[in-house]
Nucleic acid binder design. Structure first.
Lengths: 187, 187
DNA sequence: GAATTAACCTACTATTTTAGTCAGGAATTC
DNA sequence: GAATTCCTGACTAAAATAGTAGGTTAATTC
């Protein structure tokens, strides 16, 4: 099991949008440069995110992408679903073809497990990550270094105005990442 | 994001082992026939499961595979980890190469998310699925139909002896599976 | 002890997915 | 009208997945 880079890129990019949301649209060129992802590839991903109604594109100079909804209403699950299209279901597609006529156990197992997984990922929102203490400041610091000056300026103003209020931070789970963890979800 | 068939096959096969565990070893040929998976492919998966210490092979006639530990001590996460090898981590491997010297946000985000996902999958054991009411009986019924007679016989005896006690059943979540759910985890 | 069963092992192959490139067009701002 | 940025579709190389094939070894049964 793994999270494709497609999914990872998307979540990361959306996080970037969420962090800079109050400061205005973020261009894909910025994200591309900052995260070392091909611009064209990002465009493909954002085409899907836009079709899913997660982001809004703003054309022309000063344009870019913004979140279509508040970060608190966008879950990790939604992001991943919009870029990963895996529509085909279990081996026995609904009617159960496990050699006999009866519905096979497998189907129920997977719908159950997938439902639980989806519920889990639905419970994590972009906002929960943005709201963690230090994140906006760290992001600003980084932006300045790589030359996202205009954005950094707008963002700094936003921070000063207290837009990035630090609220209930999520369970950080700082313990060292084991090999197992990496295998499960980070590709 | 998706669960590879590699992972899905493995979990399903392990579930089969768990259901028939008290009745003796299960052959890969049986699983192959029942689930329509290539025998050779199953062998490759079980080689990994064995190396991970999740199953024990029993050679010769009447042999097959058994769980190396009680089903209650084998989590879905362990199974998936043993067959999926994705060792490479996030883009910035530890030191953070997001154009500047500082550790990028992304890394923390993913270790955090992956830890949570792993914890989630670690919390689900094979036993939880086997113990759901009706599963052993349904499995027996199916086994009979496709000709797993010897196994079915042993299993029926086991059921009669009350080996498959129905204990606390897990949250079944019967609601219809949405497209979203399939996209998230079932490939 | 020969035949059978079934685990165990290694190498190869086709298909699909991923990740990326390229080449352009359309809206917006200056 | 020139620059900027989104937006679109078609193509491509590399990697992972899923499956094949052909064999060896250990235990059991006859």
């Amino acid at each position: 099991m793994r999270l494709s880079t497609k999914g990872r890129y998307s979540v990361t990019a959306m996080l970037d949008l969420a962090i800079h949301d109050k400061a205005g649209p973020v261009t894909l060129a910025d994200i591309s440069q900052c995260q070392g992802i091909s611009l064209s590839y990002l465009e493909q991903l954002f085409a899907r995110l836009r079709k899913s109604g997660l982001v809004k594109g703003v054309r022309g100079p000063g344009g870019g992408y913004r979140l279509a909804r508040p970060a608190s209403e966008i879950s990790i699950a939604e992001i991943i679903c919009s870029v990963d299209e895996n529509v085909d279901v279990t081996r026995c597609k609904g009617q159960g073809n496990c050699q006999d006529g009866s519905k096979c156990l497998t189907h129920e197992l997977w719908t159950n497990l997938s439902t639980k997984l989806h519920e889990f990922l639905s419970g994590i929102t972009l906002a929960q990550f943005v709201e963690r203490p230090g994140i906006p400041e760290l992001s600003l610091q980084r932006d300045k270094k790589i030359g996202r000056f205009i954005l950094a300026k707008k963002q700094a103003a936003a921070i000063n105005q207290g837009v990035f209020a630090v609220s209930k931070n999520i369970n950080t789970n700082e313990r060292a990442s084991t090999g197992l963890v990496d295998k499960v979800s980070v590709r």
